[in-house]
Structure formats: structure tokens, C-alpha cells
């Protein structure tokens, strides 16, 4: 575990906590894309299936449980919570996210480390995570007023993968040259998608 990766995980955790705070404190999910939240839930479920089979560390297991339960809780709130669900911008959140799931799945079938169920699920989760933010970014561009918490949520979410890229660079020079092109390329695409958001976020 290096500082970049730890910073990345903490930034990721913080982004989820900011979103939970926004929904809990304001009892509103206006400006939040439910589709992006559903995609993240699929990402975590597909990637953290090894939660019960491979024990890596307490930290690793705890964080996996936190990410799975928090993403499920957010989706539940946006679908079932009587007050919150009313504030969901259904007609604004129109991105066809099924296309993203299908594309990521096809890519995972073609490009993976090994053609095994677990490796294909892992690659699927990496590809899907790279594009999962798209519905949210589209919603932000449509939405007139982006409230601070939602903006901060997206900012931390974009920053976390940038830290991971630094982590991969660090590991490349310290642990030898693993082939991690799936993570590399997806991480670059993922962070790149935030470029215009970061541009406007800092200009505002």
C-alpha cells in the first residue's frame, strides 16, 4: 500500500460520504444521476465478488463492504425512500446506461487478462467504472444549478482515479513491470472524462 493508493481510496470514500451526506441532510437527490449510482453498484458487485473467497487484508475487506453497502444504500434511497425519491430528476436523467453495461461486457469478453469468469468480471467492472460517470456528467451539464455537494461529489470521484494513476506509476517503478494495461487505459479514460468537468469546476 503506497500513499497514492491510500489517498485515492480515501478520496473515493470521501466522495461517497459527501453524496450520502447530501442525500441524508437535504433529503433530496436533485442533480444526482440514479443511473450513475446503479452503474457504480454493478461495478462494485462485479469487482468485489472475491470478498468472500480471497482475504487480502482487513482494510481491503472493510473498504469493499463499505463501497458495496453505500452504493446500494444510495440506489435504495433514490428508488424507495419516500422523501428522496420524489426529488429525483427522472426526465433529466436520460442517459441510456444499458448501452454502457453492454459495451463494457463485450469489451471484457474480448480484452481480459485470462478468459475466466472472475477475470472477465474484473475487466467488466474496470471498463464500466471508466464510463459510469457519464450519466452524471450529462445531468450536470443539463442542470442549471449544480449544488455544492453534488459538485464536490463529482470532483472527489474524479480525483480518486487520478491518485490511482500515480499509484500505478509508483508501483511500475518500485515493483517491476507488471502488465496492467487494462487498469492503465481505463484509468486514463476515466480521469479524462472528468477533464471538462474539472475545467468548469475550477473556473466557476
Amino acid at each position: 500500500m503506497n500513499a497514492f493508493r491510500f489517498l485515492g481510496d480515501m478520496t473515493h470514500l470521501f466522495s461517497v460520504l459527501v453524496l450520502l451526506l447530501k442525500i441524508y441532510a437535504t433529503k433530496s437527490c436533485s442533480g444526482v444521476s440514479r443511473k450513475t449510482q446503479e452503474l457504480y453498484m454493478v461495478v462494485f458487485l462485479a469487482r468485489y465478488m472475491d470478498l468472500f473467497t480471497d482475504y487480502i487484508s482487513l482494510y481491503n475487506s472493510v473498504m469493499k463492504v463499505v463501497f458495496i453497502t453505500s452504493s446500494a444504500a444510495i440506489v435504495w434511497c433514490m428508488r424507495r425512500h419516500p422523501q428522496v425519491r420524489r426529488t429525483y430528476d427522472k426526465e433529466q436523467d436520460t442517459f441510456r446506461h444499458v448501452v454502457l453495461v453492454a459495451a463494457a461486457f463485450v469489451l471484457a469478453l474480448i480484452f481480459n487478462e485470462r478468459f475466466t469468469f472472475r477475470e472477465i468480471c474484473w475487466a467488466f467492472s474496470i471498463y464500466l467504472e471508466a464510463v459510469a460517470i457519464l450519466p452524471q456528467l450529462v445531468l450536470l451539464q443539463r442542470g442549471r444549478n449544480v449544488d455544492n455537494l453534488t459538485g464536490q461529489y463529482v470532483f472527489f470521484l474524479g480525483a480518486y482515479r487520478a491518485f490511482y494513476i500515480l499509484n500505478w506509476i509508483y508501483r511500475y517503478f518500485t515493483e517491476g513491470h507488471h502488465s496492467r494495461w487494462i487498469s492503465w487505459l481505463s484509468g486514463l479514460v476515466q480521469t479524462g472524462l472528468y477533464a471538462d468537468f474539472f475545467y468548469y469546476y475550477f473556473l466557476r
Binding site: D50, I56, S57, N60, F67, R114, W122, Y164, N167, R171
Partner: peptide
């Protein structure tokens, strides 16, 4: 093998 490493990342 290479892919064992990245399973230690979240």
C-alpha cells in the same frame, strides 16, 4: 503471474 497483483487494489 501478473493479474494476482491488481486484486489487492480496490
Amino acid at each position: 503471474e501478473t493479474s494476482s497483483y491488481d486484486k489487492d487494489e480496490l
